[in-house]
Design a protein around this nucleic acid. Structure first.
Length: 425
RNA sequence: GGAGAGGUGGCCGAGUGGUCGAAGGCGCAAGACUGGAAAUCUUGUGUACUCCUUGUGGGUACCGUGGGUUCAAAUCCCACCCUCUCCGCCA
């Protein structure tokens, strides 16, 4: 959520932000109009309430003095009705106001490229060595089949399409990777690990911006009105919802492993083969709560932390700076990390590192006591560190050998308890 | 799931219809005292919204949440949520 004062004072800036996302600017006008109506009503009803409070006080005194106050009471009853009616009006206006506010996206940072879609993203750097093969590299599905690490049909039997099963050395590799990443974040990069609930309430989903916009992409437990988390960002960021942190605590850096649940509504038929796009996947996430003036530096170090996961594994990847039209609803600036998949000859997004500025903090009401002692919204950031299925794909495809085995990156061997995945047939 | 108790400011805790944003204490901040500190004393110390003549200014709201009764609600009524204790069930 943006600051209404910002919209009031510099509406052109906000409109410009929406235009840079190729979105209609009508919401800004809606919000401004509702804001004006709301303020007029509040002023009006506050004056009425002031009168009621004043008269009510005097009634107490007059009753004790034995005066007849029937007429005043009658007048006050009418005033009360008037107030109730106006309060109702305010509630209606405020509801629409809030709904509109929640649908205005963050304003893209000034320093990122303007463009409608991913074709305008900036290729910042390539890291590592592109692997070369003296044979035709296979894709992860074929490799996985030979290694016996996936079972897609039984996933369909248990649940449905998009819920693959990992088996044997595949399951173990995944577990090893999770542990490798968490150890890196906690032991070398100063993050605190948390293991949060994987199911959250509606307030949490609004806090990080998944609701109301992404409702269709989420799994919902109707009886309890709970939601399955689409990313650890939700429980971890909401950890401090409605809290006021002390300035000395900042920056707070947290990391969490969680499964992620996504309905992927609207993407039916896209990337349906293998484990590229699934409804449930594992991910290690990093989240930061920082002082506003430091958030862009913190973004750079967050990207570095995510990159370290990949360089530590010796994988080849690139870093993209997303353009205005490609960043997520809540983000002001975002970098993507994409691993090279030689088998399918394409780039796989495994991490998105974003600065949300105060956008999420405002929704989730996360503040800190600033230098002036006043509660001030923090800036929040998060980045994947990293998503597992695609990391798995990249390892399979980048580290494959002519004999069909996969020679694992050295860093993961102690966690895996071996140096390679071996074909079962 | 059943029975009981309870949810008040950063924390503890008083408050059963009117002058209560809320006693008292703790904590915190500033000042006094001190060579310095402790102790002591004094003063101050919530958040959000809103208005204007932008001020050590005015107003409104907030005592778990949402409704209701009343001229007036922390206080009475209803519903819900949460916490604790006991019982039941259970990994």
């Amino acid at each position: 959520m943006l600051d209404i004062k910002r919209i009031r004072e510099t509406p052109e800036e906000v409109r410009e932000g929406l235009k840079r996302r190729w979105m209609d600017t009508g919401l800004v006008d809606t919000v401004l109009e509702l804001d004006q109506r709301r303020r007029a009503l509040v002023t009006e009803v506050d004056a009425l309430k002031a009168k009621r409070n004043e008269v009510s006080k005097s009634i107490g005194v007059r009753v004790k003095a034995g005066e007849d106050i029937t007429a005043v009471k009658e007048e006050m009853r009418r005033l009360g009705d008037d107030i109730a009616a106006k309060d109702g009006e305010i509630r209606t206006v405020e509801k629409s106001f809030r709904a509109a506010m929640l649908r205005i996206p963050n304003v893209p940072s000034k320093d990122i490229a303007t463009g409608p879609d991913s074709s305008c993203n900036r290729d910042v750097r390539h890291v590592g060595q592109e692997p070369t093969f003296d044979f035709e590299p296979l894709d992860h599905i074929t490799l996985g089949e030979r290694l016996g690490i996936f079972d897609f049909p039984r996933g369909v039997k248990l649940t449905g399409a998009g819920f693959p099963i990992l088996l044997g050395q595949g399951a173990k590799l995944q577990r090893a990777l999770i542990q490798y990443m968490l150890d890196l974040h906690t032991q070398k990069q100063g993050y605190t690990e948390i293991l949060p609930p994987f199911v959250v309430n509606t307030a949490s989903m609004i806090g990080t911006g998944q609701l109301p916009k992404m409702q269709e992409d989420m799994y919902h437990c109707e009886v309890d009105d709970f939601w399955l988390i689409p990313t650890a960002e939700v429980p971890v960021t909401n950890f401090y919802r409605d809290d006021i942190l002390d300035a000395s605590q900042l920056p707070v850096k947290m990391t969490a492993y969680t499964p992620c649940f996504r309905r992927e509504a609207g993407s039916a038929g896209k990337d349906t083969r293998g484990i590229l796009r699934v409804h449930q996947f594992d991910k290690v996430e990093m989240v930061k709560f920082v002082e506003p003036s430091t958030s862009y530096d913190e973004l750079e170090s967050l990207v570095k932390d995510a990159e370290d996961v990949l360089t530590g594994l010796g994988l080849y990847f690139r870093v993209l700076e997303l353009c205005s039209g490609d960043i997520s609803f809540s983000a002001a600036k975002c970098y993507d990390l994409e691993l090279w998949a030689p088998g399918q000859k394409g780039w796989l997004e495994v991490s998105s590192c974003s600065n949300f500025e105060s956008f999420q903090a405002r929704r989730a009401n996360i503040r800190y006591r600033g230098p002036d002692g006043k509660p001030t919204f923090v800036h929040t950031l998060n980045g994947s560190g990293v998503a597992l299925p695609r990391l798995m794909i990249a390892i399979l495809e980048q580290c494959q050998q002519a004999d069909g085995s996969v020679l694992l990156p050295e860093a993961i061997r102690p966690y895996f308890g071996g140096d390679r995945l071996v074909p079962v047939r």
